[in-house]
Amino acid sequence: MSESKENEEGLLGSTSSRRDFLRIAGTGIAGAFVTLTLGCATMVRTQDGKNLKVWATPSGAMVQDPNLCVGCRRCEAACTVRNDGKASAYVARVKISRNLNYGVEGVSSAYALADGQHGNFRIVAQTCRQCAQPKCGDACPAGAIKADKKTGARIVDARRCVGCGACQDACPWHIATLDPETRVSTKCSLCDGDPTCAKACPTGSIKFYTWEEAEKLLWGADATSGASAVSGATA
C-alpha cells in the first residue's frame, strides 16, 4: 500500500469526520498556527490556550465483512505472531474472538437468534478504525501513540508506553489492548503497509480499505460494528 492521495491532503480532506473535526475544533483553532507534518500528530495551541493534538490522516484501515468471515481466527494468530512473536487472541489487533460466540452485544436470552456461533452464525469483527481524532492517542499520558510516518496508522511506541491502559479505556470499542504479559499497549499498525491479517484470511473477509472507503464502511451504516456495511445486510 502506498501513501495515498488522502494522506497528502491530510486534514484538508473532504470526508465527513474530518469536516466534523474541523467544525468542532474550528473556533478554537482559528487564528492558531497549524502545521501538518505528514505521518505525525502535531500539537497546536488554541486561542484559549489549550493544547490540541492534530492528527495526520491514515492511509486507510482494516475492515472485516461479517458475511464472508468463517471464524477461523487465522487473522488473530497471524497478527500476533508477526507483531509479538507469539500467538494470542486477546492482544490481536483484529478482534474476532470476543464476538465469535454471541456477537458484539454479548449473551442474551435470545442468543439462539442473535449474532455469533451460538446464534445466527454471523461473525462481526471489530477492527481499529484509525480514527481521525483517535481517543486512544488523545488519552495517552505518555505521548506513546502517534501516527506512523509511512501509513498514518495510529501506532504505539512501546518504548514510551507506560502500560496504564488509558488508551484501552478511552477507545469506544476497546481496540487498543494492554498486553497482560508485557504491560505494553498494542493496537493495529497496518503492519507497515502490508497487513498480515488480510494475507492470512482464507476467504478475503478482512481487507485493507483506503481511508475514504474505510470511513464509509466503518462509520456509514452501523456505528457499533461498522462492518455490516461491507455486505450491506445481515445474515
Partner: peptide, 16 residues
Amino acid sequence: VRMGGCAHCPIRCHSQ
C-alpha cells in the same frame, strides 16, 4: 449461511 469449523483452520468443514 456459511461454513464454520475450528480455530486456526482454513478448511471449513462444518456447515452452518
